[in-house]
Design a protein around this nucleic acid. Structure first.
Length: 584
DNA sequence: GCCGTTTTCGGCCCGACTGTTTTCAGTCG
């Protein structure tokens, strides 16, 4: 079994931690860590990139790491890691995951007490053996026990669809307090990441203390992880960690920019600032001398808006969703930032269900709900016959349904157009769930994987290719089949999927349901670069699920998607024209 | 380990909070 991108990323990240425990210089450590992060979010397989000989074109991959990647691709292992793991117990990588334990402490426990695993550490802490070590005391011993308990409670990353409303509720509460003049959700939620590690909130106020005190004493707080005058962290009863920072309003721009991240983007911003003669932090730009020392007597530049922060560096404002140091700084410098799609651009929803299969509303009710939300046209796409559990439509029923769709379309009197489609299963054996004679009667055909998602790469890829190669199929729904936060995507050869979609002009979906957000941003970006049409759909099974469109738009924006690439931003005439060109 | 119209060698972002310290190291984001 060849190693996947994810497995290679894991090895690099383990190497980074082991090197850090060993005491290696931090920049070498960070090279491995950054390489791991980059590879984790890569939209292409390392196999394909290696075959092209372009591994070193990946940012942060030089000759050394390219050689190591090649070794892993060819042999499935990395000698350098094996050697390192023989020298430094690899169990320490887990120990470092305990909150409050870093590489230095892990090394201390290992060297002094021969501790190499979390259970050993917990036992030592409970026996009071840690408190006498250098730099340790009773409090830090207690914190380690708490850290281990927190780790076992930890639910992992939280889907954006859960974290965002929770964050908004807390922020709303804080903004009712006197002295809170401005507030924002920052961090990875603001950047629209599909899953969230912790919630970052920012409030502007000249009097932070009462707001901080309220924050750490909220009823949903399980424990206070840190409590300072401008920065506090709490763990909620539901396990979510929330960080709050409070700064003066005159510093809102630098603060929001800093607290939104990503860290990699911040580093680039600070490097740019240094080149321009400033040290940049969350408070201000501070002039530095040629040695890089801050000139305390020189006036600082305060920014009350993010626009001003970027302008100080000679840049246009960069949308949060693309602040990942994945080319946005260079694009901004060149004046080539994309005009990202917005929710207002969305004209239609091309994937939804009704009571004909597993939805909760009739065709007419879905049309009314879509109209209320400003949609100009929709496609009714109930499940196909193979999805018996979802009350999928037999050939007879889907033909019947068409009559009702046509009738509702008439009834709506042009206020909204209602088209007839289907979400057709791609069956396990790779065949499609309706014959061409049925498909050709439909206005729009979505084909989706729902079952046998764990098939080997070649087999499952071929299923998707079969669908794309059918001229009646217009869109591949939720192409990778992931469910957040836990179900892994199918092992698809995305290069092959993209090539086929490009050849046939088949669209790929960004499913807006926050459980899916599939395609993910990096794949959407790649698809758009290749000229493949995108469709952002809610897959709504009820009226209120139509309101989830914003999550899909966020994901699209993370993928640098502009409205022009998205079918359902088009006016209905253009949509009809597109489907007719495809033989409808 | 990466990277480069200042550099192929010598840099590599910055600050808050904690707990242990008598002035700071470690951790975190």
């Amino acid at each position: 079994m060849p190693l996947t991108n994810r497995e290679i990323a894991d090895i690099f990240e383990k190497v980074a931690t082991l090197l850090e425990i060993k005491g290696e210089i931090i920049h070498r450590v960070l090279s491995y860590r950054r390489a791991g992060e980059t590879i984790r979010d890569l939209p292409r397989d390392l196999h394909a990139i290696a075959a092209e000989g372009t591994l070193t074109a990946i940012p942060g991959i030089g000759d050394t790491l390219a050689t190591k990647i090649t070794e892993m691709l060819e042999t499935g292992t990395l000698q350098f890691y094996e050697k390192l793991a023989a020298e430094i117990p690899p169990g320490l990588v887990e120990v470092v995951h305990i909150n409050g334990v870093g590489p230095k402490k892990a090394k201390l426990f290992w060297k002094e007490l021969n501790i190499t695993t979390i259970p050993e550490l917990e036992a030592a802490a409970r026996e009071g053996k840690l408190r006498n070590l250098a730099g340790m005391g009773e409090k830090s011993e207690k914190k380690i026990i708490e850290g281990i308990e927190a780790l076992s409670r930890q639910t992992g990353r939280v889907p954006l669809g859960i974290a965002l409303p929770a964050a908004q509720a807390i922020l709303d509460r804080l903004m009712t307090l006197a002295g809170a003049s401005e507030g924002a959700i920052a961090g990875s939620i603001r950047r629209g990441r599909p899953t969230i590690g912790d919630v970052d909130l920012l409030v502007a106020s000249d009097d932070a203390t009462p707001i901080m005190d309220t924050f750490v004493k909220m009823e949903q707080v399980a424990r206070v992880l840190g409590h300072g005058p401008t920065k506090s962290s709490v763990e909620l009863l539901n396990g979510l960690q929330v960080d709050l920072r409070i700064l003066e309003k005159s510093r809102w721009g630098t603060a929001l920019n800093y607290f939104t991240g990503s860290q990699a983007h911040n580093i680039r911003m600070r490097e740019l600032a240094l080149k321009a003669g400033y040290s940049l932090n969350e408070h201000a730009f501070s002039p530095v001398d040629s040695q890089g020392n801050i000139q305390e007597d020189a006036p600082k530049i305060l920014c009350d808006s993010e626009e001003k922060v970027y302008a100080t560096l000679g840049l246009p404002w960069i949308p949060p969703e693309i602040r990942e140091d994945s080319g946005e700084i260079e694009a901004a410098q060149a004046g080539k930032l994309p005009e990202l799609i917005t929710l207002n651009d969305i004209q239609a929803d091309l994937h939804m269900h009704t009571t004909w299969s597993d939805g909760t509303l009739s065709i007419r009710e879905m049309a009314e709900a879509a109209l209320q939300r400003g949609r100009k046209y929709i496609v009714i796409t109930d499940h196909s016959q193979y999805s018996a559990i979802a009350n999928g439509l037999s050939v007879e029923r889907i033909l019947q349904q068409q009559l009702e769709v046509r009738q509702v379309d008439q009834e709506m009197g042009g206020r909204i157009r209602v088209f007839h489609g289907v979400e057709m299963d791609i069956r396990s054996d790779g065949t499609l769930d309706y014959p061409d004679e049925v498909l050709e009667k439909l206005d729009f055909v979505v084909a989706s994987l729902h079952i046998s998602l764990r098939q080997p790469r070649e087999q499952i890829t071929q299923r998707v290719l079969n669908a794309i190669n059918n001229p009646h199929v217009d869109l591949i729904g939720h192409p990778r089949g992931q469910l957040l936060p836990d179900r892994e995507p199918a092992d698809l050869d995305m290069d092959a999927v993209f090539a086929a979609a490009k050849e046939h002009g088949t669209a790929l979906e960004i499913n807006a349901n926050p459980r899916r957000l599939d395609l993910e941003a990096q794949y959407a970006r790649r698809a758009v670069e290749l000229g493949i049409p995108i469709c952002i759909d809610t897959d709504a099974h009820a009226a209120e699920q139509m309101d989830l469109m914003g999550y899909g738009v966020l994901t699209a924006r993370r993928g640098w998607v502009t409205a022009a690439s998205v079918i359902n931003t088009w006016p209905v005439e253009k949509f009809i024209q597109w489907t007719q060109q495809r033989g409808k």
